[in-house]
């Protein structure tokens, strides 16, 4: 499991990759919390780009639930973007689509969350800044 971040205006896009399961859920949580910290001061939203996630198990989904609680407590928004069809199925079967908004792409998520972030995303030649 890997997690890298990009910033588009006030929004942090955290791109996860690989399998998220009981072997690395703690690492996923630590990395995601670091991402959440990056724009805490401006109460900015976070988009988790799932396009390179192959699988997420119950312990990984729990991290998403904790992240949603953390963000909601700070009146911030967090969403999932671009899950693969299989991961999208897992999200639906576990009913997590009732906890977190899921968008088909990062661009769609930014369109919903922040006009400034969308403009930065569309203007960025190689996907923004780390």
């Amino acid at each position: 499991m890997e997690l890298s971040t990009r910033r588009f205006a006030d929004v942090i896009v955290a791109e996860a990759a690989g399998r998220i399961d009981y072997t690395n859920a703690d690492n996923f949580k630590s990395a995601l919390w670091q991402a959440i910290e990056q724009n805490r001061g401006e109460r900015g939203p976070v988009v988790i780009d799932f396009s390179r996630v192959d699988y997420i198990s119950s312990v990984g989904l729990r991290v998403l639930m904790l992240a949603a609680k953390e963000m909601n407590g700070g009146q911030r928004k967090i969403t999932i973007a671009a899950p693969s069809p299989v991961v999208q199925e897992i999200i639906a079967i576990s009913r997590f689509h009732l906890i977190l908004a899921v968008f088909a792409s990062v661009r769609e998520a930014l369109e919903k969350l922040s006009p400034a972030a969308l403009a930065a995303h569309d203007a960025a030649p190689a996907g923004g800044t780390t």
């Binding site: 989904l61 009913r95 906890i99």
Partner: peptide
């Protein structure tokens, strides 16, 4: 319960 309900 669903997983989402059982942990929230």
């Amino acid at each position: 319960y669903s997983l989402a309900d059982s942990i929230s």
